[in-house]
Every structure is written in C-alpha cells, then in structure tokens.
Amino acid sequence: MNPVATPFFFYFLSAMALISGVLVITRKNPVHSAIALIFTLLSLAGLYLMLYAPFVAGVQIILYAGGIMVLFLFVIMLVSVSRVERESQFNKQWLVGIAATAALGVLFILVYAKGKSVFPERTVQLPEQLNTQQVAVWLYGTYMLPFEIASLLLLVAIVGAVVMAKKRI
C-alpha cells in the first residue's frame, strides 16, 4: 500500500489533536470540553493508523471515543452546566505548573539533542498485515501473565465500583 499525502495527514491530524486538546482545558462548558476530547482521541487514532498500528487505532476508537466518552458525556449531561460555569476553572497552582512544563521542555530538548543514538532515525517498515495477529501473540503468549493480572485488577475494580454504588445488593 502506498501512503497518499502522508505529511499532509500527519500535520492535519497533529494540528487537530493539539487544537482540540487546548480546547478541552479552555472551554468552560464541560460538554464542549468532552466533545473536544472526542476529536483529540479520533485524531490520535488517525496518527496510530499512520504509525502502522491499525489494531491500536481501532481499539482507540471503540474504547475511548465510542465507549468511555459516551459514559463521560452521560455523566456530564446530568450536571447543571450553569452552576459549573460559575465555578473557577483553574486551581491556581502556577508554581507547580510552570515547574512541570519546564521539566517537560528540558526533556524534549534533551531527546532532540541526544536522542539520535536511542531512537532509530527512520521508521522501519512494520508488517502492517500481521499487526493484529502479532498483538494477539504477544498478549496471549509472551505477556500472558501480566495480561491476566491486569484483567484481574480490572475485575476487582468493577466489583468495587458496584459495591460502592449500590446501596443494597
């Protein structure tokens, strides 16, 4: 498969992800924020596709955009928007914020300056056709135990949530 207009799509998706990401934190209305977040997630899915990771992209759409965001919106819709809009949006922790941003910036600069030896310069041609199969082999073969532990953890979380939410079982 020959990719069509790859740089264009890369910049387009990145711009969309960034702009909607900024919108998520600047919108006062929580529903608008959630919708912006949906667009961030969708453009990230597009970026995964460009990285030859179609399975991750598909899961991103199904789980995050389709599943989790539905639940997000579900909850947010029940909140009184007018009351939320009156509350202050940022919690004024400027010092910590600036420190974290600076640390991240330094990290980026370091990666740019010294990362040549760590990261390969060119993307390798990944086996797109077998991507899903390889994910499956790794999950159910090599990393079987961690995978099962993670799923057990999630099960515990589900049971806990049910116990906490339901008054009588």
């Binding site: 598909g58 759409i61 199904i62 955009a65 389709g66 965001m69 539905v70 919106l73």
Partner: peptide, 8 residues
C-alpha cells in the same frame, strides 16, 4: 468502532 460513534 465507527458505528459506535453514532451514539455520540
């Protein structure tokens, strides 16, 4: 995935 986006 895409058909589940309709619910949004």
């Amino acid at each position: 995935g895409v058909s589940s986006l309709g619910v949004l």
